[in-house]
């Protein structure tokens, strides 16, 4: 009776074999995609694929609790955390193609194949005919979670408590590392300090950027501000909205101003050329009078 059961237990069902041969390549593809993807977000998504496949494999391998945890906690929470951080540090910071360390890729590949070969060789050589003791008994009637819980809270109670300490510590560490006191001295400037800094020349200009102003025909941010002579104030052009370049509007501006931009009426100084000649003349005069 038991022999029959053991023989039955040792067999792997066809369904599982199909599942393995589907999920295994998918997991491998996900892993390879992760390391080959240039963009970090793509890498993360490839990893999600691998993890989901592994989660299903856990369920197939009579570990339903772990399978769900894998999908919910790992894929759902941890990987989303990764994505969050990726977005924070800049998703467009893709790796450069050039490898700076000489021979790193070559050696990494050689050693990777080497370790894979060693482990595969060892496993396939030593674990050819292992009798498989299935977990039907432990998992009977959905008792997988119950039995896991019993095991964790009795046999593995102390390690479990240790993991709780570890988690608290990790949470504390994350808080310490991630916390940024913006009100600390030197972190954010008060208005007074900001004004002083502006006039000390630490910023490009002492005043705020010009708004659309009184000569504006629209209050859209895309509309550039006009200077009193009708020309476009270059500072008012939005950097984000490149399409609102001054060239696009130049004709319109001219028509709005009604005047071709000529010599500046409000200009207090003559043109640079005139200035220089006058100066020379003046100096000559002074010399002659002497």
């Amino acid at each position: 009776m038991s022999a029959v059961l053991a023989a039955a237990a040792a067999e792997v069902s066809t369904g599982e074999a199909i599942a393995f041969w589907v999920l295994g390549p998918v997991a491998l593809a996900g892993a390879l995609g992760m390391i080959f993807a240039r963009n970090a977000v793509h890498s993360a998504l490839w990893l999600v694929l691998t993890m989901l496949s592994l989660g299903v494999m856990y369920m197939v391998q009579q570990a339903p609790f772990l399978g769900f945890v894998q999908i919910i906690v790992y894929t759902g929470a941890v990987m989303m955390l990764f994505l969050f951080v990726l977005m924070l540090v800049g998703r467009d910071s893709s790796d450069s193609v050039v490898e700076v360390l000489r021979g790193q890729r070559l050696w990494a590949t050689v050693l990777g194949i080497g370790i894979a070969g060693l482990i595969v060789g060892a496993v396939s050589r030593s674990l050819t005919d292992v009798p498989v003791e299935n977990l039907q008994q432990q998992n009977a009637g959905g008792a997988n979670v119950n039995n896991l819980g019993k095991s964790i809270f009795t046999e593995y109670l102390f390690p479990f408590e240790l993991t709780s300490a570890l988690l608290i510590t990790a949470a504390m560490g994350a808080m310490v590392l991630g916390y940024l006191n913006r009100h600390e001295k030197g972190m954010k400037r008060t208005q007074k300090e900001l004004v002083e800094a502006r006039f000390r020349g630490e910023y490009e200009r002492p005043s705020p950027l010009p708004g659309p102003g009184v000569f504006a025909t629209a209050n859209s941010v895309a509309t550039p501000a006009l200077l009193p002579d009708g020309s476009v104030a270059p500072e008012s052009l939005s950097r984000l909205i490149d399409s609102t370049a001054s060239e696009t509007f130049s004709d319109e501006i001219k028509s709005v101003a009604g005047t071709e931009p000529g010599p500046d009426a409000h200009a207090l100084t003559p043109s640079t050329k005139d200035t220089s000649t006058t100066d020379t003349k003046n100096t000559e005069d002074t010399e002659e009078t002497r």
Binding site: Q104, W107, A108, L111, I115, L118
Partner: peptide, 11 residues
């Protein structure tokens, strides 16, 4: 890389 090399030697 050297750690991996060492691991391989060990294995």
């Amino acid at each position: 890389l050297s750690m991996l090399g060492g691991s391989i030697l060990l294995i």
